[in-house]
Amino acid sequence: MEPRNQTAVSEFLLMRLTENEKLKTILFNLFLSMYLVTVLGNLLIILAVIFDSHLHTPMYFFLSHLSFTDIGLSTTIIPKILVNMQAQSQRITYTGCLTQICFVLILVCWESFLLGAMAYDRYVAICHPLRYTVIVNPHLCVMLTLLSLFISIGNALLHTLMVLPLSFCKELEISLFFCEVVQVIKLACSDTLINNALLYFAISLLGGIPVFGIIFSYTKIISSILRQSSVGGKYKTFSTCGSHLSVVSLFYGTGFGVYICSAIPDSPRKTAVASLMYTMVTPTMNPFIYSLRNKDMKGALRKLFSRVPTIL
């Protein structure tokens, strides 16, 4: 393929969802509904945490930021898919593609760190309950949140800027429904050794730290639960981790699915579907997981709905 300089690249082509017009209408309505549910559900969680003083705790502080990342990730990806479906065009500008890459990297990395922080919060609450308020104090919560955000931004900017010097070939079709750094790098005709090395290093380091923290925390939690004599006490203690474990399983499970599909040769459609599960289904499900399995959250949402007529 004949290369051309990156300054001449004005746009990329995203994968087409389907050629079937009836199926396209169904998918458009489905994605629009998922987006609205994601934004509304996560926004309700954020408002409930803000307005209910009973939820002014570290766990719900992290949860509100997790909801923010879910809204951001869905907003970064779904509206562009909907616009392209309506316009019957798969084009995305070069600048728009790099912007999408940057925000996806920031939000996915930040969400991973937040899940790790929430696991640490549960570990301290269960294994060191008497020292919980001292260890997991507001200063630590703010520091962990800001530090993880700054690391995520720095990581995203690094990988996005590393794409700028790349030259691309005539074939500029991305094998996903949105711009993702790995897929864009695959389209480059120039040497991508440094890009790939930095990418895998960042995934190993920035992805490994939260995963190790989650595994460590739950190893200690399970060990603490097994030492309890009461079956009811074991269930009550472990039930406080149920929602977080569900979200962790969904987030990393679908992420692992994307990795498996991308490793299989000639499976771009499977990889694209898995990536949609990872970036669309997970943010949609999180509000239901935390609202349906959490009595405090359900109570806060009831209070919030009761205040709506007064506010209006």
Rank of each mutant, 00 (worst) to 15 (best):
L130H: 13
R131T: 09
R131V: 05
Y132C: 03
T133Q: 11
T133A: 07
V134M: 09
I135C: 02
I135S: 06
I135Y: 05
V136L: 09
N137F: 09
N137G: 01
N137K: 06
H139V: 13
L140I: 09
C141M: 05
C141V: 05
C141S: 14
V142H: 05
V142T: 07
V142Q: 05
M143N: 15
M143L: 15
L144M: 08
T145G: 02
L146Q: 08
L147A: 11
L147M: 03
S148K: 01
S148F: 03
L149F: 14
F150Y: 02
F150L: 13
F150I: 03
I151K: 01
I151A: 06
I151Q: 02
S152F: 01
S152L: 00
I153K: 03
I153R: 04
I153V: 14
I153Q: 02
G154Y: 00
N155R: 07
N155Y: 12
A156S: 10
L157M: 03
H159W: 04
T160K: 03
T160M: 09
L161R: 04
L161S: 06
L161G: 04
L161C: 01
L161K: 07
M162H: 06
M162E: 08
M162W: 08
V163K: 01
V163H: 00
V163L: 12
L164M: 14
L164A: 14
L164I: 15
L164Q: 14
L164G: 08
L164S: 15
L166I: 10
L166R: 12
S167L: 08
S167Y: 00
S167H: 10
S167C: 13
S167N: 15
F168Y: 14
F168R: 03
F168L: 06
F168K: 02
C169H: 06
C169V: 06
K170S: 13
K170T: 15
E171T: 12
L172G: 03
L172Q: 06
L172P: 06
E173L: 12
E173Y: 04
E173W: 05
I174K: 02
I174M: 08
I174F: 01
I174L: 09
S175F: 01
S175Y: 01
S175C: 00
S175V: 02
L176Y: 12
L176F: 12
F177E: 04
F178Q: 06
C179R: 00
C179A: 14
E180K: 10
E180L: 12
V181R: 09
V181W: 00
V181Q: 14
V181T: 10
V181G: 08
V182K: 10
Q183K: 12
Q183N: 13
Q183E: 14
Q183M: 07
V184F: 13
V184G: 13
V184M: 12
I185M: 13
I185F: 11
I185D: 11
K186L: 15
K186Q: 13
K186F: 10
L187S: 13
L187K: 09
